[in-house]
Amino acid sequence: MEFLNALNVQGRVISALTLRETRARYGNSKLGFFWALFEPFAHVVVFIGIFSALDRATPLGDSMGLFILTGIIPWLLYSNIVSNVTTGLSSNKALLGYPQVMPIDITISRVALEFSTLFLVMLFFLAIAHYMGIRIRIDSFLEMMKPTGLIILLGTGIGLINAAIIPHYPSYTSIFNAFSRPLYFISGIFFTANFLSPEVFEFVDFNPLIHLIEWFRSGYYPSFESDLYDPEYAVFICVGIFTLGLLVERLSSKKARQV
């Protein structure tokens, strides 16, 4: 009973926070949603440019744009969640004055907003592609959502760990950025692991994102069989990091509340 009541309160809090986050991001100016659309668009355009300058064919399917899109959306989901969760607490500290608002609720609402935004963005671009006459054929929606869920866990976990470390070591932010920026190039956004030589693959194999993006793509492309992604590894890493993040958050959130 008590638990159901708590769940009910948390549900209210999260929905209120999500509404607030939505208003804060998209309510006051039209720029918010425009940016949400523009960012993946820019990545897609740049890579189409690079690939056509190099006279390269798309590694998968028949549309270069779709190929990049299926890589950039999971990537953005990951990196946006990380940055949103990392900064979530500091930009919402005032709302913690309401005692039933827990730091984790802010995290959850931000993640929910990010996921819904990118989901809509993906649908938007698929619709555009459809109008442009590009054939859209999704192999398995479920197989796309599984890695999506894991990306959410991974991003949230890393964001929570960051949020716990940064107050103690502010210089950690730049260290983290320095390490995570190169991830963009080894996460399989503009290539598939099948094209990598085994030596290179061994080098990027540790990166759970390449596994997840490969998984996402093999859910989208009916013809794509990536034998290089390892679901067990991805699940273990993502759930592990998420649990660690939750643990760190619990240990540090009581302090975060002290005004």
């Binding site: 309160v9 209210r12 809090v13 929905s15 209120a16 926070l17 509404l19 607030r20 208003r23 804060a24 919402n92 005032a94 709302l95 004055g97 309401y98 039933q100 608002v101 005004v259």
Partner: peptide, 20 residues
């Protein structure tokens, strides 16, 4: 009065409190 979010309007803060 620390519970109000400074960059939201009064009405937005009010709605937030009502929801929770």
């Amino acid at each position: 009065t620390g519970s109000f979010h400074p960059s939201l309007t009064g009405i937005e803060n009010l709605r937030f409190a009502c929801r929770i």
